[in-house]
Structure formats: structure tokens, C-alpha cells
Amino acid sequence: MEIKKADFVISAVKPEQYPDDKRLEIAFVGRSNAGKSSLINTLTNRKKLAKTSSTPGKTRLVNFFIINDDFYFVDLPGYGYAKVSKAEKSNWSKVIESYLVDREPLRKVVLLVDCRHKPTQDDVSMYKWIKHYSYEPIVVATKIDKISNNEISKNLKVIKETLGMDSGEKIMKFSSLKKRGIEELLEAMF
């Protein structure tokens, strides 16, 4: 799979605003600051397609990007960010759950976890949700450039154990900074 064209379509607040053209969708989920926007920018080779920030919790809407005029990448709000109100967290949860449960064109869900940290209970719940709804789990360990190769191996084991992944399931390693893992991830998604 080669991405030749990528364009922002809409930041949607409610389902009525989602694209209605029945193109397939691949959703990206993860904690705030797990690197969803950076990953989308790296996959599409566009530096500012998805908005990135050093401040977690910036993605608050459901963002749709059309890829090769054929399908969508969908950047969902990050979860688990502590510096927002309980009401806002609850609203984000409803938006994410509504999209994931009710969105018919959704075909794949990519779960991003920061390889430097043990997955949170929210990450575990999301992984279980992906499996419960019969999606093939694609787990991506981001920010691998920020730790040593020895630490990566140890941390991947912790991630796999914490999420409760089956022995045959793989974790994709990804670095937006070093552009590592692009081909493998694209292959896993298609």
C-alpha cells in the first residue's frame, strides 16, 4: 500500500457530520499524547495534516482524512488525559464509544500505546473492546526512538502482558521521528 494523496475532510462533533459516502474507515485510538496525529502525519508523509501538540488532549473531535480518494483515516480523541473536567472526559468517552460501536464503514481499529509506559486501565479496556467487537487488534508501540533497543524489548513484553495479548498477536514498533515501522503498519492495516 502506498499513500499518494491525503486530505483533511472534517472535524466532526456528532455523527450527523461524519462523511456519508460509505468509504471504509481505519480508526486510530489511544491515550492523549500517544502519538496518533504524528503517526497519521508520518504514514501520509504530510507534516501538518493532523494537528500535533506537545500538550496532551488537543484532539477533541473526530477527525476524518481521506486517503488516496479511496478510504478514511479517523483520528479519535485521546483518552485518559487528567487535566480536563470529568464532564469533558465523559463526553470524549461517549464520542469515542458511539463512533466505534455504531460506525458501519469502520474496518480496522489501531490502538496506539506509548512504548515508554505500561498500558493504563483505559488502554486495557480499549484493547478488550476491540477484541469484543471482533476487530483484528493492531497494537502499535509508538515513540520507540525515545528508549534503547534493550528497553524496547522489555517494554513490549510488559505491553503484551498488560493488555493480555494472545501469543500469536504482534505489536508493531513505530517511530514518527525516525520514520520506522511505516511499511509494516501499512501492510498490517491492509
Rank of each mutant, 00 (worst) to 15 (best):
F174I: 09
V13Y: 11
K173S: 15
S125Q: 13
G35T: 01
K94F: 00
I26E: 02
I26H: 04
L61T: 15
K179G: 11
V9G: 11
P119C: 04
T52Q: 02
N63V: 08
P56V: 04
E88F: 06
F71V: 08
L185V: 08
D69S: 05
R107P: 03
G181E: 11
S32K: 06
I67K: 07
K22M: 01
K86R: 07
R180N: 14
K5P: 14
D122P: 10
I66F: 09
V110N: 10
K146F: 11
W129A: 03
Y81G: 07
G168W: 15
S167V: 08
L39V: 09
L61W: 05
M126L: 08
K22Y: 01
G80H: 06
A188W: 00
R180E: 15
S32D: 04
Y135H: 12
D123L: 09
K143W: 01
K4F: 14
S11W: 08
Y99L: 03
R31G: 05
V124R: 14
V74H: 12
K173R: 15
V158H: 00
F174G: 07
K178P: 13
P105Q: 11
T162N: 00
N33H: 09
N33I: 09
L43R: 11
L100Q: 09
A12Q: 10
A12F: 08
Y99I: 03
N149L: 14
K14G: 02
R116W: 09
A12K: 10
K108C: 09
M126V: 05
T142Q: 03
K58W: 10
D70Q: 03
R23W: 02
G80Q: 09
K157P: 00
P105M: 07
A50T: 04
W92S: 01
K5Y: 15
A82G: 01
I152S: 05
L163I: 01
I40D: 02
A27G: 04
V95Y: 01
G181P: 07
L111F: 11
K108L: 12
T52G: 02
V110G: 07
L24E: 08
N150I: 14
V140N: 00
I66K: 12
L61Q: 14
Y133Q: 08
G57A: 03
K89G: 03
P15W: 07
E104F: 08
I182E: 09
K157T: 01
S90W: 00
R103C: 12
V84W: 01
R31T: 12
L185Q: 05
F71A: 12
S167T: 06
K160M: 00
S32W: 06
V113C: 09
H117C: 08
N68I: 07
T120N: 09
A27I: 04
W129V: 00
V110P: 06
P56F: 04
